[in-house]
Amino acid sequence: MTDAFLGSAVTYSCNEGYRLIGKDQRRCEISGKTVRWSGDVPICQNIPCLPPPDIPHGRHSGTFTSDFVYGSVVTYRCDKGYTLVGEDFIYCTTKDEKNGEWSGPAPECQKTGKQCSYPPAIANGKHSGQGRVFTIGTSVTYSCDPGYTLMGRAQINCTASKFWTDPIPHCKVSSAGCRVPEVWHGKISDLKPAYSPGETLLVECDPGYTLKSTQEAQCQDDGTWAPAVPICEPGSHTIVPQVLGTLGAALLFVLLAVIGRIICWKKDGKCHANANTPPNAADTTKQEFSSVL
């Protein structure tokens, strides 16, 4: 603000990670024989967090730090013989722009050995346990890629014996599929002999034809295509020449027929209307064409 008049007001705010201490607004007012701003100038203070929680059989990087403010990060590590379960770090954040809190709960340190090995991978599928530690009692869920069906139970559990429950499911090609569609005045890019649910096809139209709808269609679980297989239609720039060409040929045929009927040969000053061949030169002294218009 460069100029302020009596009654003017200013509002204060703090940058991200800071909280305002004091009133956020001041006014230009009369005080005795002078004009001054009301109240005191507020201050901006770092938003603080309480010390991060300690964890049994582990420690964090902020052990020797006394103040934790907005943006502070601490990482956790476990003692030898223990495995970290959960995110290895938390950070100081805020929800109300006044009070700080940690981004999440602290991880845990569990004794190594009380867990299952990494869940078995399956062909054409995956499980939900990517990048985790699998302690006793935890479970993972399997799912298949598009075009495949899960055979067996989707969920397996880590048992007290530190083995996964049997059997492990597997993915099988879906019995349902989509027939290869017929595309008039076009072709299918990278044509396959068959399409499984989830697979897509692309249609390209022949020169002079354009797509009526989207270029892509996807095979559905019920054996249908969605959206419908694209259709190639004649483009507007090709219809006109075709029409004009047809009309032109018809008009030319009619014109030639009319001209053929009205052309005659003159012989001895007389017009012979049905003269498909001209008279012999020996029989005439003078020949000329005359058209009746």
Rank of each mutant, 00 (worst) to 15 (best):
265 W>A: 01
200 T>F: 05
204 E>S: 14
181 P>Y: 07
226 A>D: 06
212 K>F: 07
239 I>L: 06
265 W>Y: 04
237 H>G: 04
170 H>P: 00
198 G>I: 11
239 I>V: 09
206 D>L: 14
265 W>N: 02
240 V>I: 11
154 A>C: 12
264 C>F: 14
240 V>K: 10
163 F>C: 08
244 L>D: 08
153 R>I: 13
176 A>N: 09
203 V>G: 00
165 T>D: 09
257 A>G: 11
267 K>S: 06
243 V>D: 08
247 L>R: 10
169 P>G: 00
216 E>F: 11
155 Q>K: 13
215 Q>T: 05
194 A>K: 15
187 K>F: 08
211 L>A: 04
233 E>V: 03
250 A>D: 12
244 L>K: 14
189 S>V: 13
230 P>K: 11
206 D>W: 09
205 C>V: 04
268 D>T: 11
150 L>W: 03
216 E>T: 07
192 K>W: 10
196 S>T: 01
210 T>H: 15
196 S>G: 01
195 Y>Q: 05
158 C>Y: 02
181 P>N: 15
190 D>A: 05
204 E>P: 06
176 A>R: 05
170 H>E: 03
218 Q>W: 04
149 T>Y: 15
236 S>D: 10
163 F>L: 14
205 C>I: 02
182 E>F: 07
181 P>F: 10
218 Q>A: 04
201 L>K: 01
235 G>R: 14
239 I>M: 05
205 C>R: 00
168 I>K: 04
224 T>W: 06
214 T>L: 04
218 Q>I: 04
214 T>P: 00
232 C>E: 13
210 T>N: 14
156 I>H: 04
223 G>N: 10
149 T>H: 13
250 A>L: 11
158 C>Q: 08
158 C>R: 03
153 R>F: 10
175 S>P: 08
197 P>R: 01
268 D>V: 11
262 I>L: 07
182 E>C: 04
197 P>M: 04
219 C>A: 08
232 C>S: 12
170 H>W: 05
175 S>D: 12
196 S>V: 01
185 H>D: 03
230 P>W: 08
160 A>V: 02
201 L>I: 08
151 M>P: 00
249 A>T: 13
249 A>Q: 09
211 L>D: 02
244 L>M: 15
228 A>H: 14
201 L>C: 04
240 V>P: 02
152 G>K: 07
189 S>E: 12
206 D>H: 12
184 W>S: 01
166 D>R: 12
208 G>T: 01
184 W>G: 00
237 H>S: 13
227 P>S: 06
198 G>P: 09
183 V>I: 15
189 S>G: 09
188 I>Y: 06
263 I>G: 03
190 D>W: 14
152 G>R: 05
153 R>T: 12
247 L>K: 12
214 T>N: 03
152 G>D: 03
160 A>K: 02
215 Q>I: 03
222 D>Q: 13
266 K>F: 14
222 D>W: 15
250 A>G: 12
245 G>I: 14
209 Y>Q: 01
265 W>C: 01
246 T>V: 11
168 I>G: 03
220 Q>F: 09
158 C>T: 06
193 P>I: 06
171 C>Q: 04
220 Q>D: 06
212 K>L: 09
